[in-house]
Simulated assay, not measured.
Amino acid sequence: MTIVDSETSEIEPNNGSELAMAIKPTQKPITAQLSWNDSTDYYKVKLDQAGLLNIKMTAYMEYISVQIFDSNLYEVTDWSEEYNGSELSGRVKQDGYYLEKGTYYIKVSQVVYRSSTGKYKIETKFSKTPNNEKEPNNGIEQAQKIKPNVQSVTGLISWNDSSDFYKVDVSKTGVLNIHLTIYQNKDIKIYDRDGYELLNRWIFKSSNTSSDKWSTSLNVKKGTYYVQIYGNTGLYKLNVKVPEMLPKSPKAKATKTKVTGTTYANSKVTVKIGNKKYTGKSSSTGAFSIKIPTQKVKTKVYVSVTTGAGTSKTTKLQVK
């Protein structure tokens, strides 16, 4: 039988993980208490996807311990400290943790050797993260493939997923450009196909209010390379570019009413005039003809093609 205390909103008994009171990822404040004969409370929260779990504690007592565990009861964190709260004046502590999908337990108890009883309030807030990485990717053998010049990925380093690997296939000898946007400090390593380390860099985030952008370039031969991201928990964005792998610019000419030319077969062709863009598709033989609003002679026109290898540099023209 479960019991709801008339002066609190916790459901008893909840003094063990197997008896833990279920709460929502975003939970309104629950009022509970620790007493001489009820010194421990457990709460269970289930996350349907990875994200940031914020926990806010208001303690109306001098000392209190807050611990977070995963489903295997491995400790995520421990707040065993002095709050200096009183029956009439609660003291607040809150923190957030990036966690993977799964079940977690929050344990609230008396601090060892500093027995303290009284009431407290606990509330949670969960924010889903917009990461689109494919798990598992925490080793070279599980590395997620990322296409140069085409794909970008938003990844998450969390408490229980501390390292992400990406596989990059370079089809032409050239320059491997790595671009990283970070929201917390991160580490990056780059390996060749044999696991030999080509780069090892710690990236410090200089601003507490905005993201930082970092990039590096390596001269590489045709082959397979791996990028490892790890470090402080939180989101990052990664994209990889190899200019030598980009398609060649189209061959084209422009009249007052259309742009014609040849390029790769069955590919998207984009014409830019000023701030306007006009698109079309090349034929099976690579020919294209794209209608444009009537233009003046010598108007500047820029033409590019997009294939599975990325978007080419523009071909610069003038209307004749």
Rank of each mutant, 00 (worst) to 15 (best):
N177D: 10
S283M: 02
D164G: 07
S283H: 06
K272D: 01
K281N: 11
V240T: 06
S211N: 08
K189E: 11
K213R: 09
N232G: 08
N160L: 04
K186V: 05
T257C: 03
D194N: 15
K205E: 09
S249G: 12
Y191M: 03
V269C: 04
T224Y: 04
K291Y: 06
S283V: 03
K248E: 14
G231P: 13
V220P: 03
Y196F: 13
T257H: 05
K248S: 15
A254P: 15
S249F: 05
W202M: 14
K213D: 10
K272L: 05
T216S: 10
K222V: 13
W214L: 06
K205W: 08
N208K: 14
W202F: 14
M245P: 02
V175E: 10
I178R: 02
S163T: 11
N275P: 07
N219C: 04
F288K: 01
I188V: 12
K251H: 15
K222E: 12
E244Q: 13
G274Y: 00
R201K: 15
K241S: 12
Y230R: 13
S289Q: 14
A252Q: 06
N266G: 11
Y191C: 05
G174E: 02
N239R: 10
I190T: 07
S171T: 14
P247N: 08
I178Q: 04
S206G: 13
S158E: 02
L176Q: 04
T279S: 09
F204Y: 15
F288H: 00
S284C: 03
G223P: 06
N177H: 11
W159L: 11
K272Q: 07
G174D: 03
D194W: 07
T154Q: 15
N232L: 06
R201W: 09
S283F: 01
K253Q: 10
G274V: 00
W159T: 15
K268C: 05
W202K: 15
S289K: 14
D169R: 11
V220I: 11
T260D: 02
Q184G: 05
K237V: 00
V170P: 05
K222M: 12
Y278A: 10
S283L: 02
M245R: 12
V175D: 07
N185R: 13
V175M: 13
G274N: 01
K213H: 07
